[in-house]
Write a protein that binds this DNA or RNA. Structure first.
Lengths: 231, 231
DNA sequence: AAGTGGTCTAGACCACTTG
DNA sequence: AAGTGGTCTAGACCACTTG
């Protein structure tokens, strides 16, 4: 048995782990349902039980799978609000819960009159700042309003893409721009009439407001985002 | 080779894990120093490499040990509550803002009918759970309602103190009970009439709800707290 | 009774850090 | 070059949930 389907550089169990993640994310394996048994996966991939179990262990630790002794291994349903302090993008977080993240662009434009944002991003006066506003969906349910601001240079990069479905961090990483750290602040507030309208909830309902200032590897601010989400 | 030192009921690797924890806690293995190699531990305990690695893996996941490929495994410096960036207590946070944290005890009593809390804390049926409810003030302004639950043993310790101003983690550290890690969940909700009354706000105002499940060094849950705060 | 994941053994080769 | 943890195999028996 040769494992021709696998590449040499990376550990087998990590490659298998990625395949399993893909099956969960594309819906081949559905939430709350049993995945194939260890024996079946052993046959399919032609590896030892240890290797299969290593791959599954990673996903159990990440909360994607759950083992039930004597029964099997099930895909974990979406959890509610996740951990803080982990620099996960919205899309990443939604996918981990087994749902499909979507976005709808409201507007994207360069502005020079955003005083607070200019200060947070530490850009000079009159320097344009890219303002992007989007509605975020989990599957087809609107769950958050996102308002992100970027300095001009990064903004130019982002504007080359379709911002409807774009994952900011992915775009930036393709251009070798990496996030280093971020400060997040969390508050609760009542939805305004406009916000309630966009999120299909009642005015006055409690929203979670997350404000994030992200820094690049050079320690310059590169993103100032405010997200208001239900729950 | 018979493993006479081990009991039958519990998995070998878990029993070894407990022995390793003990060596870290009593100082036999010091912070930032290498622990014995896998080969040495295999000889000492008379088990297979797999079993040793299983025990070590648990401690790596709990943040007590750190593996360095090619070098060995080192003891991670003890993370007490103070240095855990995310796990700031209420008092600490208020003080950072230049205000004085205060508390007012509403009630503290052992209860046996807290089903959800019993499950979260993983204590047996009918085991009493200490329920503490406090109003938290920043200077003289009420800012949060705290409702914390503790297993009986820890509860007995806490009850020996004046819970009006007590800092739980300080009390516990004095008794060599250390927090290892915690899961926090955050949500937004609207204040009920009672809550609004206690916090001197209007019913329906948005509150931040933080739920925290803390684990001790032995990985047993030791605190289940829900805090609702204005902001 | 049959099937699942949980634990454990013995052995092998590899990638990495150190003297 | 010697030693470390990382990965992988093949096999065994156990504890648990289900029909």
């Amino acid at each position: 048995m040769s494992n021709e389907q696998f590449t040499k550089g990376e550990a087998l169990y990590l490659q298998i782990k990625d395949i399993l993640i893909d099956r969960i994310q594309n819906g081949s394996w559905k939430a709350n349902e049993l995945i194939p048994t260890e024996q079946e996966l052993i046959k399919e991939f032609g590896v030892s039980r240890t290797t299969i179990r290593q791959a599954i262990t990673v996903l159990v630790q990440n909360g994607l799978l759950e083992k039930k002794q004597g029964r099997g291994t099930v895909v974990k349903p979406q959890q509610l609000v996740g951990n803080l302090g982990q620099l996960k993008g919205f899309a990443e977080e939604v996918m981990e819960r087994g749902s499909v993240p979507r976005s709808k662009l409201i507007r994207a434009e360069f502005k020079t009159n955003l005083y607070h944002e200019r200060e947070m991003l530490q850009v000079p006066e009159d320097a344009p700042i890219l303002l992007i506003e989007r509605i975020r969906f989990s599957d087809d349910t609107p769950v958050a309003l996102e308002r992100s601001c970027w300095p001009e240079e990064i903004g130019q990069l982002l504007m080359k893409h379709d911002l409807n479905e774009a994952k900011y961090y992915e775009i930036l990483e393709n251009d070798q721009i990496y996030l280093n750290r971020a400060n997040e602040r969390i508050a609760a507030m009542n939805a305004t009439i406009d916000e309630a309208d966009l999120l299909a909830i009642r005015p006055g309902e409690a929203l979670l407001e997350m404000t994030r200032l992200s820094y690049g590897l050079n320690d310059h601010p590169m993103e100032y985002t405010r997200e208001k989400s239900i729950r």
